[in-house]
Design a protein around this nucleic acid. Structure first.
Length: 260
DNA sequence: ATGGTGGCGCGGCCA
């Protein structure tokens, strides 16, 4: 038997909880990483999620950010910060689940190239890269997943000319993504043939989803020892079609269970 | 059209 892991920026878990519960029931992932929960921990709907068969671990804050991992097996060795960053923003959640090290990330958006938030994003990525060297050394079977707020290549962008050099597509952001791949991580989505114009996020404005004007910024990266077991990866666009959707769709990766 | 929509929370920030 294999297993499925997923990531979904749900842009408020309070609003989207019914959609998350429906999606869990239909898709039956072994693990779902959420970003932008926008809930303090005291308000996290752990009971509703437990009734759906999933344990929860979460690092929340009011109004902005917030990450959570829902899993069928218990999470251990939980981490909620990048080492060396004293950051009140809740964007990181690491846990060991079964024989898998899971790092759920809500990478900063960056707002616009050159802004303070963009500088923060690049510094954040530097800290992430340093941390990952240690994490990968300690955990051969590691998955890094979440909202990266980076479209790695032009084929991940509906209009690469219009987006050229802009935030989410700029050269320093893409270089940071390539350095993640340089650590041996594999972009699960690109391990397989995919339809052209495959995206994971569409702006709420200008009927972007209907016109498929999107970006692929939500990713599942697998360490070498895990990537060899990956058998599929896809975007599930169905939740983006619902009434009052998140602006992101879930991304799912499926793996064969390793013998070793 | 230098805009547009959505969440939070009630004015303005963030995406």
């Amino acid at each position: 038997m294999g297993f499925k892991i997923a990531t979904w920026n749900i842009n408020s878990l309070k609003v989207r909880l019914p959609q998350v519960l429906d999606w869990l029931a239909q898709s039956q992932p072994n693990l779902l990483a959420l970003q932008e929960t926008k809930l303090i921990d005291a308000d996290f709907p752990a009971l509703d999620i437990a009734n759906a068969g999933y344990q929860s671990v979460f690092a929340g804050q009011k109004t902005y950010n917030g990450v959570a991992i829902l899993s069928q097996l218990p999470p251990n060795d939980i981490v909620t910060d990048l080492p060396g960053m004293n950051d009140p923003q809740r964007r990181v959640l690491g846990a060991t689940i079964g024989n898998l090290r899971v790092l759920n990330l809500y990478i900063p958006n960056g707002q616009s190239v050159g802004s303070d938030k963009y500088i923060y994003k690049l510094a954040w990525l530097e800290n992430l890269l340093s941390w990952l060297e240690t994490e990968l050394a300690n955990h051969p079977r590691l998955v890094l997943l979440g909202d990266f707020n980076i479209a790695p290549e032009d084929r991940d962008v509906h209009d690469p000319v219009a987006w050229a050099g802009h935030v989410l597509c700029s050269a320093p952001e893409r270089a940071a993504f390539q350095r993640l791949l340089g650590l041996g991580l594999r972009d699960a989505f690109r391990l397989f043939p995919q339809e052209a114009h495959s995206f994971s996020w569409w702006d709420y404005r200008a009927a972007a989803f209907r016109r498929n004007l999107g970006l692929r910024i939500d990713h599942i990266l697998a360490s070498p020892a895990l990537a060899v077991d990956c058998i599929a990866c896809w975007v599930d666009k169905a939740p983006r079609r619902l009434e009052r959707p998140s602006d992101h769709a879930p991304v799912i990766a499926e793996f064969n269970t390793s013998d070793s």
